[in-house]
Design a binder for these strands. Structure first.
Lengths: 151, 151
DNA sequence: CCTTGACCTAAAGTTAGGTTTAGAAATTAC
DNA sequence: GTAATTTCTAAACCTAACTTTAGGTCAAGG
């Protein structure tokens, strides 16, 4: 097997620790774009190991796959990404992470404020601030606190 | 309508901002336990407004429903929870939150270390530490980094 | 009394992020 | 040259956290 033929999906899976099915799924989500060999099988560049590694790291940071795709769009399309390229998107990732940490800290501060006041069900409690409501995990609409009457 | 008859599910929904279907779902998950009136309809205590509010707040903090049920088990079963009771479980919630913040901070530090070194795909990179891999959102096994060869 | 709105249950649908399965074709190993 | 691996596609299945739907019952107002 010649060096320049690229990696088969199984090899990429072994190199990244991902399941083969996950790699195919990521392709369907637009996170990675292999080419096909004569027999129709997927072939990957060595740089794709790094790419998928980045995906895994970004997931730990809580980014969704669409968000990761967005961040990855900062990479050069044609040429193999350089360390500089990776550094640039790592910085973008750090921005996401910083925001997440700030949000959680703000929630913590609000909680601290509420521990003493026992206002848990009052609309005025900062914990009900819709801005803080993470459109977190799970689907479907999450209803926000309406204008509840007294109590 | 007499004061002591309790709240109907629609009233509770309006007071909390939750959907009626969500409240029923929480009951199925053991997060709240209404009684039934003569006609078989659910009736809630006023303290349940606070209880559901707590559920919503805990969700913002990233707790799963089973985790929230666990935290809520710290509340007295029979008597109406006092501000002290709420304070106690708020402290438990804060512990969860602190852990999450610490984990994210640790990830951020690792990222900072990696931005410079460009090691993104190296097994030695701290970002691959399995301990840091949040068993995050989404189901099914997440394969961890195996012992990948060089590169 | 009767209509309208709120409520009931059970089951199916939804989204994210994948995995599993089934049957067929390509590769690799011997 | 054949057997054993891999890979292929498409579709179904999985979990969490809900919503929607369907068909029927309860409660409140006039």
């Amino acid at each position: 097997m010649a060096v320049s033929e690229g990696l088969a999906i199984g090899a990429l899976a072994r190199r990244t620790g991902l399941a083969v099915s996950a790699i195919r799924y990521y392709e369907a989500q637009g996170l990675i774009a292999p080419w096909r060999n004569a027999g129709g099988q997927r072939r990957y560049q060595r740089a794709d190991i790094r790419r998928l590694s980045f995906v895994m790291i970004a997931q730990q940071f809580g980014l969704t796959l669409p968000e990761i795709r967005e961040v990855l769009s900062g990479l050069p399309g044609k040429r193999t990404p350089t360390p500089q390229d990776w550094k640039a998107i790592s910085v973008r990732l750090r921005t996401h992470l910083d925001q997440r940490i700030d949000t959680l800290k703000r929630l913590r501060d609000n909680l601290d404020g509420c521990i003493g006041c026992g206002c848990l069900s009052l609309p005025k409690c900062k914990l009900y601030n819709p801005d803080d409501r993470a459109k977190s995990h799970g689907s479907g609409p999450r209803y926000l606190m309406g204008d509840a009457p007294e109590d």
